[in-house]
Amino acid sequence: MATTTATAPVKYWSGGKSPFNVEYGKLMMWYFLMSDAFTFGAFLIAYGTTRFATNGWPDPNKVFKSYPFASESANAPLVFVSIMTFILIISSVTMVLAVHAGHKMDKKGVVKNLILTIIGGLAFLGCQAWEWTHLHHEGAWWGQNPFPNADGTVATTNFTNFFFTITGFHGFHVFSGVVINVVMLIMTLNDKFEKRGHYLMIEKAGLYWHFVDLVWVFVFTCFYLI
């Protein structure tokens, strides 16, 4: 910590102190997230490797070009997915605000921001459900790919396989994040944290939620932009 080094450096490893200066649960959450990062990393790298090993690849701008209530011929690439991205960023912000309210023991603030976060998560899941349904109607699913490569040649099913597996795995994380946040909301409303004297549990849920947002940053870039 830069702020404390001006005085005598703290000796974290000489005993009598917690070397990481966080509680057990939060440290374990960090390690879980690290292992989860490797899982997602492995998925995305497998996708990248396959893409590098294949002649031609579908153009994401031709695949993801629709949005809800649009006509068949709608051509609006990147529009819908950027809305999804902003939904997730905003829900991440409300989560930080919930954690911050927890530091101040501000129950009302925690409840308000948790509800907003849950709404954001549900909105994201709704968007994803719509997108999957739309693609499925166009004939895309695991093992079937109606989209030609960018150069017009026949594409493999790798594109749809990776897309549905990785966004599905991410969507599952969003779903479990929403469930965790709902549990946190119920616990807050039941004054569990008031009795405990701290809202550290919200911080752990927050770490998980931010991780979900973080993964989306990578998924969004790898599948929709590049």
Partner: peptide, 12 residues
């Protein structure tokens, strides 16, 4: 910033 890692102890 959101996950606050920058403000944690260097060890962590």
């Amino acid at each position: 910033y959101f996950m606050h890692l920058k403000h944690e102890v260097r060890n962590l």
